[in-house]
Design a binder for these strands. Structure first.
Lengths: 341, 341
DNA sequence: ATGCCAAATGTTAGCGATAACATAAATAAG
DNA sequence: CTTATTTATGTTATCGCTAACATTTGGCAT
């Protein structure tokens, strides 16, 4: 920067101001500086700047996996809002491991992020403590923690599947099973299962039946074996709710393979409104969540909270509820006309 | 850090050495320091450290999209190797826009990465210049640039589809079409199309027919309309090669919907060996690329090149070729027995 | 012209760590 | 038991930028 300043015939401070775009710099000076920058091929060093200004321009986001377009949507929402807010995002993926999450949080704190977005409300004690004492806004997403650390942008996974179960009941199904979500490692999958069990009880159905599929991630590959096992264990079953759309898809493909018509032999529903479900045959009934909004709202909360540290500005909202809806499609017996969704 | 040093009764330099784990520090001193760190809840500030040491610990990786598990695999490979090498990765997504790539490169250079991994070998002139003058190792991936900037870890997209076309020919298909890859925005899709056209010519087929699908990303949603248009434009067609598996999947689902049996009425092949293709019905013939290896090799090259700046160490390999293979499945007429792949 | 205010630019100090060198302590060798 | 040598720790000086304050310049009213 000193070189640029020399070439432009100004002080480094003026160069700094010109490059940040905020401080007052004459158009003439600015163009001299830009010329010098171009000539020297200079690129600003933010790591030095952030040390001095105590603002790193980073926000961390921690998600379970790269391989789930629901989370990708959330990432997109975060990027959109924080990008506009002039922040960069440091992404990390836990592969559904809480230990890995703890490591990631610690690694990210070393970079002094100005805010942290995490997935879920269940953390190791040390991770929780790190988040609490980090001194920056924290947003927990995709869940409804009983005891939030700071902000929350989420929804009740249990309620979504409760609704789905009720909807299938309304459509006339009485023998309804749930596939996936056996272990407490899979916090959200387990919550969905609980929602199913609660609905079965409330609706007074004669039997609840869960086919557990082990720890997450539950992928397409799990759906086939899951549905095969279900039909063996409970041949009278009429409908299966899967922990996610990829799982439902795998189940439906297995049905095709075996000549079990969907939904006539077995109705199948999923969760997440993946692109897959809109286009496969039959189209899949699912729970739609505004995943991108989860990201957007989280980003907005972070930005507000960063600004809110200046006392003049109102503090950021603590908690935002994301709505869900049931999309009925062919896999649970809706007519072809509903395919347009 | 000064607080920690005071509490542990040592100098900040000793604290720094203890926390880095490299310098020589007595076990006794180290445990005193760790105690102080725990008591104060201190977390090392890497942004300060990197200013001083001139090593940021960052490597940037720029990819087209979050919504493609092939690229996710590459990301995983990169993370795996660079994580072990003690580097953190700064990800950016271009959404297939070269302008966005240029912006991202510039933004990332401000963070002084120790290496840069980009997707493809086609960049804006300014982006190219930024990469060339960045003074850090650069790896271009997923392609075979005619004029590489530095290192390359890739393969010939054209050759993969050339091979696929030949394989379909070998299986007896003569009227073979290609779906996708019309625009030069889609560098890799366009290369695949060229491979198809070259194969058609070399095999002496009577007709090449391409159904262009517009700029990337080409998703599941494009496959259905694509195949419908193909069958209308060229009713005698026997086989369709799609620019990617999701597109092939969309095409196959459209065939189901219309009662066109796959592969009897139309054989369909894809690219990328997505999970989808292994599990859908029928299973989809595809080109398998070692996507994770692209990431791993790229990460290794970066690490070697960073070390290689010390003259004693051999310079890193310039170019690595990633192999591909054709996986034949049901969608092109293989027997059910081949499904196991 | 003179003075005044605001906008533009300059000066100084320091952000929090580490490199490089200096010194002290511990160990090995003779 | 000394001296040589290694190992552990301390000291000092930046790294490249920006905050905070100081100063200058230019525009405008009087």
């Amino acid at each position: 920067m000193a070189d640029v300043a020399r070439l432009a015939g100004v002080s480094t401070m003026t160069v700094s101001r010109a490059l940040k775009g905020n401080g007052a710099v004459t158009a003439a000076t600015r163009s001299k500086i830009n010329a010098a920058v171009d000539e020297l091929g200079y690129v600003l060093d933010l790591s030095a700047g952030s040390l001095s200004s105590k603002r790193t321009g980073f926000v961390s986001a921690i998600l379970p996996t790269l391989y789930n377009s629901n989370f990708s949507d959330t990432v997109n929402g975060i990027s959109e809002v924080l990008g506009n807010g002039g922040k960069e995002i440091l992404f990390g993926y836990t592969n559904y491991s809480r230990e890995r999450e703890e490591q990631l949080i610690e690694a990210m704190l070393r970079r002094r992020p100005e805010g942290i977005i995490v997935t879920g409300g269940t953390h190791t004690p040390r991770a929780r403590q790190l988040l609490e004492t980090a001194g920056v806004p924290v947003v927990e997403t995709w869940d409804e923690p009983a005891d939030p650390i700071d902000h929350v942008v989420g929804f009740s996974n249990a309620a979504t599947i409760e609704d789905m179960t009720a909807r299938l009941y309304f459509r006339g199904y009485r023998r309804i099973a749930f596939i996936g979500g056996d272990s407490t490692d899979d916090v959200r999958g387990f919550a969905r299962r609980k929602g199913y069990e609660r609905a079965v009880e409330m609706l007074g159905l004669e039997r609840a039946h869960v086919v557990p599929l082990g720890p997450p991630p539950i992928t397409i590959a799990h759906g086939g074996p899951g549905v095969a096992r279900l039909l063996q264990e409970w041949p009278e079953v009429e409908a299966a709710i899967c922990v996610s759309d990829p799982c439902a898809f795998g189940a439906i493909m297995e049905c095709h393979r075996n000549g079990w018509p969907v939904p006539e032999r077995l109705a199948v529903a999923g969760f997440g409104n993946f692109e897959l479900s809109r286009h496969c045959w039959p189209t899949i009934t699912t729970v739609a969540i505004a995943c991108t909004d989860i990201g957007r709202r989280s980003g907005e909360l972070i930005l507000q909270a960063i600004d809110g540290q200046k006392p003049a500005i109102a503090p950021a909202t603590k908690s935002i509820q994301i709505p869900h809806s049931i999309i009925e499609r062919e896999s649970t017996g809706e007519a072809a006309s509903s395919r347009k969704s």
